[in-house]
Design a protein around this nucleic acid. Structure first.
Lengths: 209, 209
DNA sequence: GTCTATAAGTAGATAGAC
DNA sequence: GTCTATCTACTTATAGAC
């Protein structure tokens, strides 16, 4: 049985608290209370609350960077796309505190703004690469104007779906099921796909209903 | 020259500050400074900061209620729909502070949560009514499953577009142009419309490019 | 209605003992 | 590495004079 380092426990607990009640509402005292350590101890490991946020953001940035390294020339299948979306939604959901109070968080930790926007642009580019692969394979029929709008729409949905979902279905269940989000994203693609691929998505989406 | 009542000036300045730097970052002192009145004076007019937020929310709620009173049986034209969307985006943009830090704001002013969700549901119902009118008029071809997904997508986009837009295009311009959002919403409908109406939207969307 | 002064509470962060 | 005690800064809100 391996003992988890206090430093990592702080990061883990902070992420959990940030996600559940919002970063601005989480005080350093609350974090230390949650872990049954003293506030002083917390400040031994991190010189400020911002450092905790910064380190969590760096993890998010890193995971996203790896995930969005979509090869430009690959032939992407619908299954691969679905798998990719699952991973994407899981990652976003894991760091959803960033999106829940975005303006506030970015205004208090200014050095994150540019990096956040860079990730956003990278997402849009990733979706574009995928869609262009579909178009190239002849399974997607879409104009350039529509493609622009679609990629922006996909990015917006990827960012805000989990916040929106937990807001509008707070009562029913609180399970952070990424499936519904993936399903919603697929439906955005649907109108532009060829009949055969449409059928394939209908079959895949059965699981989410 | 009519003198605006201090009470109204407080509301106006608060809304402006909330929107520009986020409600949690706006202190009562900042509001009174902005207006060159004393903090005590502010508390003469409002017994708490929450009361200011509450009153602004009530205005939003009221405007949305009026706007979303979509008659069930009306035959809605695309032009009317476009006009409706413009009004909707303008209203949301005017109260965008609510969306920018949604989780934080709703957690600190708990009595707003249920009301906020009610507005959300009302929006979705409004979109559904409009789409069903289109379907009934024979200008929209869509399955029930697609309609559900579309209405959720429209609601999500209506809520988060202005935040998303100001985030991703912070550099270019900061004009809260609702046009781009309307255009984006129209593009969501586009795939399900008949050829003739598609053409009509293409013509309308020229203004936004 | 408006002001000044200040209370009361809470946040983030530090000092120094163990 | 961890603790207790404490500091400083800031925020909301009130009291009481004008």
């Amino acid at each position: 049985m391996k003992k988890i380092k206090t430093r990592d426990r702080i990061l883990e607990a902070s992420l959990m608290l940030f996600n559940s009640i919002g970063e601005p509402n989480v005080t350093t005292l609350l974090i230390s209370d949650e872990l049954d350590i003293s506030p002083g101890n917390l400040y031994y490991h991190f010189k400020s609350k911002g450092d905790i946020v910064g380190e969590l953001f760096a993890s998010y940035e890193h995971e996203m960077h790896d995930l969005l390294a979509v090869p430009e020339d690959a032939e992407i299948s619908l299954d691969q796309q679905s798998f990719f979306l699952h991973l994407l939604f899981e990652t976003v959901a894991r760091y959803r505190f960033l999106y829940q109070d975005l303006v506030n968080v970015l205004s208090r930790y200014e050095q994150l703004q540019a990096r956040f926007r860079r990730i956003l642009k990278k997402k849009t580019r990733g979706f574009r690469t995928i869609c262009e692969s579909f178009r190239h394979q002849g399974i997607m029929d879409i104009t350039d104007g529509e493609l622009d709008a679609l990629c922006e729409q996909l990015t917006l949905t990827a960012c805000y779906w989990s916040s929106f979902d937990s807001l509008s279905h707070l009562d029913d269940r609180e399970s952070m099921d990424p499936g519904r989000g993936v399903y919603q994203m697929m439906y955005l693609l649907l109108p532009y796909l060829k009949a055969e691929e449409k059928e394939q998505i209908y079959l895949m989406s059965r699981d989410y209903l």
